[in-house]
């Protein structure tokens, strides 16, 4: 299987290790991984801020750059959700682009969803020693139905998951929401942290770097420098 990795803008800028971990996991599952060079961002910041024209300009590049691959995989439910569920809406008035968008949507997957349901990854292991609590990020959960997939992988790797009561509640990140209404965003992150810490897990894991940056940022601000905050891909692929 030839897979194009959609790195995502946050992974590119803030945590490249998530990108390398994703490549490792996909290759271990028998995929040939390509990283299309021209990629930047899925366009979501513009789309959710009401700047439709900018969002379209950025998304058009994605349509082009990822046209030639059998599958497109992103280590993010949010970016995969943008491509899969929102690109068709974004290009609804442009028949040619819409056709490309629908075709791309069909082939695009969130990483854990792809590993479990398409690549049927079998042998998964984790170097991480300890328990985790899993944060379901909103777009992955509600747009793509990603919930059991990361847990199945963690279970297969022998990582115990301690569920928090508010696993499916938004962490407050919300893209540009986090800088437009920062106080509300932080208060929501605090609730997420409280729920996660109540489980006593050694780490908070998730599938979207945006959420993880917000959660980790809140944890550190409240003085917790012990609890690890880690992307599920890093957790499963272990250190480089």
């Amino acid at each position: 299987m030839r897979v194009a990795l959609f790195v995502t803008c946050l992974v590119d800028l803030f945590r490249p290790s998530v990108g390398f971990a994703s490549i490792k996991l996909l290759e271990a599952a028998g995929c040939e991984v390509v990283v299309p060079e021209g990629q930047t961002c899925c366009g979501q910041p513009g789309y959710n801020s009401g700047d439709r024209a900018s969002a379209q300009a950025v998304a058009r590049r994605v349509l082009q750059d990822f046209a030639a691959y059998e599958y497109v995989v992103a280590p993010s439910g949010s970016c995969a959700g943008m491509i899969k569920t929102h690109y068709p809406e974004l290009f609804k008035d442009d028949p040619a682009a819409l056709e490309q968008a629908l075709w791309l949507a069909k082939r695009t997957y969130e990483l854990t969803d792809f590993l479990v349901n398409v690549a049927k990854a079998k042998a998964v292991s984790a170097s991480f020693k300890g328990s985790v609590t899993y944060h379901d990020s909103c777009s992955g959960l509600r747009e793509l139905g990603v919930q059991s997939q990361p847990r199945a992988l963690l279970q297969a790797a022998g990582v115990p998951v301690k569920e928090m009561a508010n696993a499916a509640t938004c962490c407050g990140f919300g893209g540009t929401f986090a800088v437009k209404l920062g106080d509300i965003s932080s208060a929501m992150a605090e609730k997420k942290c409280a729920g996660a810490l109540a489980t006593g897990a050694d780490a908070i894991a998730g599938g979207d770097l945006g959420c993880l940056l917000s959660i980790e940022g809140r944890l550190r601000r409240r003085g917790d420098d012990k609890t690890k905050v880690i992307h599920v891909a890093e957790l499963l692929a272990g250190p480089e």
Binding site: A178, G182, A189, R218
Partner: peptide, 15 residues
């Protein structure tokens, strides 16, 4: 324009 992020939390820095 990013300052509200750090009102109530830190930002983990990249490498």
């Amino acid at each position: 324009g990013l300052k509200e992020w750090t009102n109530g939390r830190d930002m983990p820095a990249p490498s």
